[in-house]
Amino acid sequence: MSGTPVLEIRNLTKAFSMPGGRDFYAVRDVSFSVPQGASLGLVGESGCGKSTIARMITKLTEATGGSILLDGDDITHIPEKEHKKRVFSKVQMVFQDPYGVFSPRMPVGTFLEEGLVFHGVMSRKEASAEAKRLLELVELPSSLLDRMPHQLSGGQQQRVVIARAISIKPRLLILDEATSALDVSVQEGVLKLLMRLQKELQLTYLFIGHDLAVVRSIADRIAVMYAGNLVEEMDSEDLTDTAVHPYTLRLLESVFSIGDKGKKHIELENFSLSDKEDNTGCPFAHRCREAGASCSKEQPGSRLLEKNHVVKCFHVHGAM
């Protein structure tokens, strides 16, 4: 797993200008990399910037700072006509709602052929044989080839979408809340499938989600985002034991598990969104129980704790 990472993001930033001349940072100074065959889980709550990162990688939106490298190739600012060759053929994405991805009147088989033909991987004829193989790969019967998307269950739809995404052998697969809309028993099956495919095909995943337990169950590393900032990154097995950032801890406290009855105490939070309007200081300061005077004045920098554990907080390691 050494060598050039499949995805490398350096100081990536997406800022929007707001009325009044202030900038709003959807993503601010985020850096991480994903080596070949690995999976990075990106967690955080709605609006934290995780999907904006995915959109920048897939060229759906342009970065305003920093860089994105795919297999070492800097794709941050490339002309649109090179998107297909340098980005679309290498990165595929799976979204939360599978039905939204289908053309409602296109049979499953044709849907699977499209990607292969579009990217010139094979002819239409070869692609139709490949479609059958792809369905088997995602554990679906080939009888589904002639079905319309609405005739499939949500779990089957998502499996077909995954099959199409991996059909062109992408270097990177971005899964944006890919199992969030599925029923629990179906979700488990799709997660197992993703895990099996990754192993068999040496796929590289960027797994975006809000459910800490689900993301942790599949990712090797976890990056936690808050308000556009990457606040903590660590090996996923260390999450429950060694997480130190106050926001990561808050997330962990908020996860319910089946044996919690009567054991867990939830503290009520009182904070106002309007408390946090400037860009100075730590983004989490207004909600943080640990916050001191320096927290709202200065942005904490990244610091490396133990092996592979990065955190942005003044209060970690006794500093400040």
């Binding site: 629990v184 028993s185 979700q187 488990e188 997660l191 197992k192 895990m195 099996r196 990754q198 192993k199 459910d211 800490l212 337990a213 689900v214 942790r216 169950s217 599949i218 999450l239 429950t240 962990l252 996860v255 598990s257 089946i258």
Partner: peptide, 19 residues
């Protein structure tokens, strides 16, 4: 039982075990 079993908890390793 099946529903309860399908819930993925923090620290669940069964997904990784499949691989």
């Amino acid at each position: 039982k099946k529903l309860l079993h399908s819930v993925i908890g923090l620290g669940d390793i069964r997904i990784k075990e499949t691989a």
